[in-house]
Design a protein around this nucleic acid. Structure first.
Lengths: 83, 83
DNA sequence: ACTTCTTATGATCTATAGAGCATCATGCAT
DNA sequence: ATGCATGATGCTCTATAGATCATAAGAAGT
């Protein structure tokens, strides 16, 4: 059940989805990540092109990591998870 | 042989490594990604906290994608690939 | 209806990434 | 030793992310 991201919009979706799975509010997550609720909202809605460092802060707070892999042929089971 | 990144420094390493595997120069990659060689250099050396959009441009140019996954217990075979 | 929780968003300020020009240092050929 | 390819980096300018204050909008419960 990998989450795949090829765009910032994908990333925003994945982050929001994961946050909700962990029952965190934006404010809680922001606090954990040392950033602002405003910023979490912006990133989840792709309202701004975030900085990579901020993304890594969020990933760490959600206990996630990035795997960089060759683009895959479509695996339907994965794509379901994005939308 | 996943490449794992938890920091911008990791990301820089992975991008450089992948670029070299594909026998591309920074200038070629930059051209493909629609950015500047200067920027590629900065990102590979973590000389600046890049923007996510720029990273996605580079990933696309290298035919890579991000998989967002729960942090794994250390798998030595993977870590070797990073350094 | 009112309170509460949550997310979105307005405004201003500062820091900095990337564009755009460049040059320089290095290493590797020949 | 010299010429080329490659990557690093100096500088200025502009755009914009994030910090920091805030409020507003919406849903959900009582």
């Amino acid at each position: 059940m990998d989450q795949i991201a090829r765009t910032t919009k994908d990333l925003g979706h994945v982050l929001r989805q994961t946050r909700k799975l962990q029952n965190l509010t934006q404010a809680e997550l922001a606090s954990r990540a040392g950033i602002w609720q405003r910023t979490v909202s912006n990133i989840e809605t792709s309202a701004s092109g975030a900085k990579v460092d901020t993304i890594f802060d969020l990933l760490a707070a959600l206990d996630l990591e990035l795997h960089i892999v060759p683009r895959s042929k479509i695996r339907p089971s994965d794509l379901e998870d994005i939308f």
